[in-house]
């Protein structure tokens, strides 16, 4: 697809904006696509709902905002409830299964479940749930390549947390491969 519109949403403190930045950087710097990140700002980034919105395209992005997201990554119920119905049938919704009940609101797009927060906790720190999710997104979609996403993750995270983040990313990626094998969705 020439133009992908991605919405990553959750609540403040989950590293949502950072996840958006990493994904955008992966697309822009390593996959050499055009990518524009816009984000919710202000009180929203301090504990309430928050969203990173990405337009990723093979050609120049003139209009920088989402017209209709075709990939939603929902890391809170509120985010899911707000955006799920906006994703068209040929789009994709990825949820953090630990935090989101996908049947709460009607949705047209298929839903992939990834227990990112639970996995992150098992790895030792729930703070890497966003990176687990990025691994999953890299494996379950082709919006950005897994290689680019991994590079962007490792370039962005603090040096002392490199190992944990590498593990988080790989775990998410592996998880996605299994899900893709089972569902055939990609």
């Amino acid at each position: 697809m020439a133009r992908n519109e991605v919405c990553i949403s959750g609540f403040g403190g989950q590293g949502i904006i950072l996840a958006g930045h990493i994904m955008g950087e992966a697309a822009s710097k390593f996959d050499k696509k055009s990518a524009v990140l816009t984000k919710s700002y202000g009180p929203e980034s301090r504990g309430g709902a928050c969203a990173a919105r990405l337009v990723i395209s093979d050609s120049d992005v003139h209009y920088p905002y989402l017209t209709q997201p075709n990939l939603l990554v929902a890391m809170s119920q509120e985010a899911y409830d707000k955006y799920a119905s906006k994703v068209p049938a040929d789009g994709l919704i990825i949820i953090d299964e630990t935090l989101v009940d996908p049947e709460a609101v009607p949705h047209r797009a298929p839903v992939l479940r990834m227990p990112a927060t639970k996995v992150a906790e098992e790895l030792g720190n729930r703070i890497v749930a966003n990176v687990v999710m990025l691994g999953f997104v890299a494996g379950a979609t082709d919006v950005v390549s897994a290689e680019a996403m991994r590079k962007a993750v490792l370039e962005t995270v603090p040096k002392k947390a490199l190992e944990l983040n590498r593990k988080a990313f790989d775990t998410g990626l592996e998880y996605a491969k299994k899900v893709v094998e089972i569902t055939g969705s990609r």
Partner: peptide, 9 residues
């Protein structure tokens, strides 16, 4: 604000 807070290459 849009350009100031937009992230891009």
């Amino acid at each position: 604000e849009a350009v100031g807070h937009m992230t891009e290459r």
